[in-house]
């Protein structure tokens, strides 16, 4: 089985501080992998290195076997990395469906100035049908024509997922998807995500603080501390690792 994502010795320095040091991870097609660690462990930095928001100081990032280390964000996105944001990033003054439409257009690289000018830039029936299919999957069908200002935070996050799905990602990076959500919303999100993943077959790399969410959602996890990998393996085992408990959960035992 080929790795969807494969990083080799990725390092990132910020004015002398090693935010990520020599990190090598891999994600297989279709699996869900967690990336956990205490605040400031370098999770977000690593995320940004994978996405292309930050350039690595050393190391290689491979997407489905291709070296993308030097590529800008949008080029990597076209090669199959989708993402959601910790602090929701939606397009102001667009409806839910419009978010998906523009992603679909971008994926197909269909349309441009000339097509717009001759009047073929308007959304077509097949595009709308494709968007609605995804909206149905995410349970957003009812709010398809709502401007995103009217959505709840949980719905907003699902719109982000839907938008990313329209690009046909091989790998979806979720940046703390539960942040700001209450218990019920978190549970709903987990159910929806799992259903969608089963349906569309993509891998997930998840940065998350909510231990319950991580352990229920992922098969494997990597644990970072001070920019270094301190543990990896099946999530349940990793969370039981004393070193991980010391670094991430605090030294004291947690009853659960």
């Amino acid at each position: 089985m080929t790795n969807v994502l494969d990083t080799q010795g990725v390092s990132k320095k910020f004015s002398g501080i090693m935010a990520v040091h020599d990190l090598s991870i891999s994600v297989d097609a279709g699996e869900s992998v967690g990336l956990i660690g205490p605040n400031g462990a370098g999770k977000t930095t690593f995320f940004n290195c994978v996405l292309g928001v930050l350039r690595v100081n050393a190391g290689v990032v491979r997407l489905a076997g291709d070296d993308v280390t030097e590529m800008p964000v949008h080029a990597r996105a076209r090669r199959g990395i989708g993402r959601t944001f910790q602090r929701i990033e939606l397009f102001a003054e667009s409806t839910v469906r419009e978010h998906l439409l523009i992603a679909e257009r971008t994926r197909r690289r269909d349309g441009g100035l000339w097509k717009d000018l001759i009047g073929r830039g308007r959304p077509r029936a097949d595009e709308i049908a494709k968007c609605d299919e995804v909206l149905e999957l995410l349970g957003l069908r009812d709010v398809a024509d709502e401007p995103i200002e009217h959505l709840s935070l949980g719905q907003g996050r699902l719109v982000e997922v839907g938008r990313a799905l329209m690009t046909d990602p091989k790998l979806l990076l979720l940046d703390e998807p539960t942040s700001g959500l209450d218990r019920q919303e978190t549970a709903d999100l987990a159910i929806t995500l799992r259903a969608v993943q089963e349906h569309r077959q993509f891998a997930i790399l998840l940065v998350e603080h909510d231990v319950e969410f991580v352990s229920s959602f992922t098969q494997r996890s990597y644990v970072l501390d001070f920019g270094q990998l301190i543990a990896s393996g099946p999530t349940q085992d990793v969370l039981r690792d004393p070193q991980v408990r010391a670094a991430y959960l605090g030294v004291e035992e947690i009853s659960s």
């Binding site: 964000v73 996105a77 076209r78 990033e89 939606l90 397009f91 667009s94 419009e98 717009d116 830039g121």
Partner: peptide
């Protein structure tokens, strides 16, 4: 109302999000 307008609208709505779906 076409692709270019929607793309620009997406960028001015959120540039990082636009990039994340492959818009340059």
């Amino acid at each position: 109302s076409g692709t270019v307008g929607r793309t620009l609208s997406a960028i001015s709505g959120s540039e990082v999000a636009a990039e994340s779906i492959g818009i340059s």
